[in-house]
Write a protein that binds this DNA or RNA. Sequence first.
DNA 1: AAAATATGTCGTAAATTTACGACATATTTT
DNA 2: AAAATATGTCGTAAATTTACGACATATTTT
Lengths: 112, 112
Amino acid sequence: MTKSEKFDSSFRVLAIVSKAMSHPARITILKYLAEVKTCISGDISKEIPLSRTTVLQHLKELKKVGLIHGEVEGSKVNYCLCQKSIKKYKGLFAEFLGSLDVEVVCKNESNC
Amino acid sequence: MTKSEKFDSSFRVLAIVSKAMSHPARITILKYLAEVKTCISGDISKEIPLSRTTVLQHLKELKKVGLIHGEVEGSKVNYCLCQKSIKKYKGLFAEFLGSLDVEVVCKNESNC
DNA sequence: AAAATATGTCGTAAATTTACGACATATTTT
DNA sequence: AAAATATGTCGTAAATTTACGACATATTTT
């Protein structure tokens, strides 16, 4: 259904990244990773009010778009922010939202 | 289920805006509105490869978070970008993604 | 070795999202 | 007034997302 090769490729990328950030748990995880400034164990269900499996699921979503990456170390997996993609996505969002910042002329001038 | 008062309020806002931008059709609509620099009829299904009702549905999503707003004018509705919220959200994203830009110290230094 | 810890894998229920068609209604056009 | 145009409202199917629990397995600890 959402077989959207119908849409512009760069728009699809933007949509995919947005989707990765479209859940408060995932935003919380990203922020947490930035705050502790280190890699965390995959089991951060103590920090997030969700079960371990659900948190794992969210970590997988973030990993899928490259916002984080995980390194296996013995019996645990350390997840870290991926600075490279974060910078890239920051640029993408700034560019896109910036491109929306234009003077719009409407008949009815009650702009919002 | 996603009764997430569990999460920080500002994180929830970010998630809601991200969700609004998480579909290529909606990104396309926003970009189109910026390009034509005017208000468009609710029926832009000629520009978007989706049916009229589906496009309407997407317009509603964008309206819900305030990225666009529609003005009824006779038998038609003109949708416009809402500069106010676009600027606000641009700031939010820049601030959030900027806050993720920190030096992360991991044991295994293969940062991405 | 046994217990504890950390993950991984499945399956599943409930909620949402996405995409449309069928109608109904209101407004313009001709 | 009739036809055309622009929306609005419903209902629905199929796909996805979200949240968990039950087990299985691998690795550390004790």
